[in-house]
Design a protein around this nucleic acid. Structure first.
Lengths: 189, 189
DNA sequence: ATTATCTATAGATCTATAGATAATGC
DNA sequence: ATTATCTATAGATCTATAGATAATGC
């Protein structure tokens, strides 16, 4: 149809948005391309006009989610209150909205099983967040904190959020979030 | 065939062992029943003689893995050196053997998307480990540490292991493990 | 006689491709 | 004229079931 150039981009963006959300909410293997395309208001046939494969879609979806998360973080991070940042991550709202939440908590363990290229995309687009976290921690603590140390803090946050999501009992899940907040503050102070 | 009673149990055990390993290594959704049965030396047709559904198999596989992990932990935990315990968890060996490793690190985020009954199995068979960890931490720190606090420590360990598994670069992955060890010791002391 | 296992298959879904259709730019 | 979209389909795989076969206990 040779639509206006922005039409194609807009469609691509819609597919990516749907994919990011569905992958994070239900898992990568559990979401078919037909479902992604339907969510974007299209049929499966069009998929390969926009992406080379499901793996290529995944890489772009991860990149998108991670970059968006990073942008949101650097907006709030400078001068932010530690407890506020941690409580935002380990909140019941974040727990209950995995589709639009942290890609690390939602997908890290599944991405670990994907090809190196996908892991590289994940890792390299998570790195800016780790660096921002490390710089923030460094200035708070008054001594150098490295990227890997930031990864341990993010690991604590994401791992605890996963346990809270897996808990079938609401009160127990809330208690895990609360304990995670205490632990993260303790670790970051 | 009405085999000896132990034959049936042995077959069931073989299926469960294969399922536990394959689920943890490749993810639940990514592993079909045909693959599990083939790994156990059987064909798909026999599956439903032993289990009601894939979900029922998953529940039993989780239960098995979690109980086994718990048994191994309580053997080594009393009087164990903190750093040694943490280093065993965040070791390159554990990172590279997800199939036989910690079910929390391998499957928590995927289990979180499964039915309540499955989450309940996961949570209730993880609880003894959390209680043992909490008791150990309590005696080490000389003050009461709750189950949720133990969950935060396990969250740190599992989340960090996931990030190390997702990292495409070996050196970076090792650095994450090392930072995780420092963080876990800091948190548990 | 019982029952664990096998082969075979139903029916749904998966990723990916082929070819027709239609909406736009030139 | 170009190309994004559609319908249709290939070929593989998924969970689950049906019915035949064969290995055991009584």
């Amino acid at each position: 149809m040779r639509y206006a150039p922005e039409h194609n981009d807009a469609t691509r963006e819609r597919i990516l948005e749907a994919a990011s959300r569905l992958f994070q909410e239900h898992g990568i293997a559990a979401v078919g391309l037909a479902k992604v395309m339907a969510e974007a208001g299209l049929t499966v046939g069009t998929f390969y006009t926009h992406f080379e494969s499901k793996e290529a879609l995944l890489q772009e979806a991860l990149l998108r989610s991670l970059d968006a998360r990073h942008e949101a973080l650097v907006q709030t991070l400078p001068g932010a209150d530690l407890e506020r940042v941690v409580r935002a991550y380990l909140s019941p709202e974040h727990r209950d909205a995995s589709g639009t939440g942290c890609p690390v908590a939602a997908l890290a363990s599944e991405v670990a099983r994907h090809p190196r290229a996908t892991r590289h995309t994940f890792s390299s687009h998570n790195a800016p967040t780790l660096d921002a976290l490390a710089a923030w921690l460094s200035s708070r603590r008054g001594k150098k904190v490295g990227r890997a140390d930031a990864a341990a803090l993010l690991g604590l946050l994401a791992g605890t959020l996963q346990l809270a999501r897996a808990a079938p009992d609401r009160a127990e899940s809330d208690a895990i979030l609360e304990a995670g907040v205490r632990a993260a503050i303790r670790l970051a102070t």
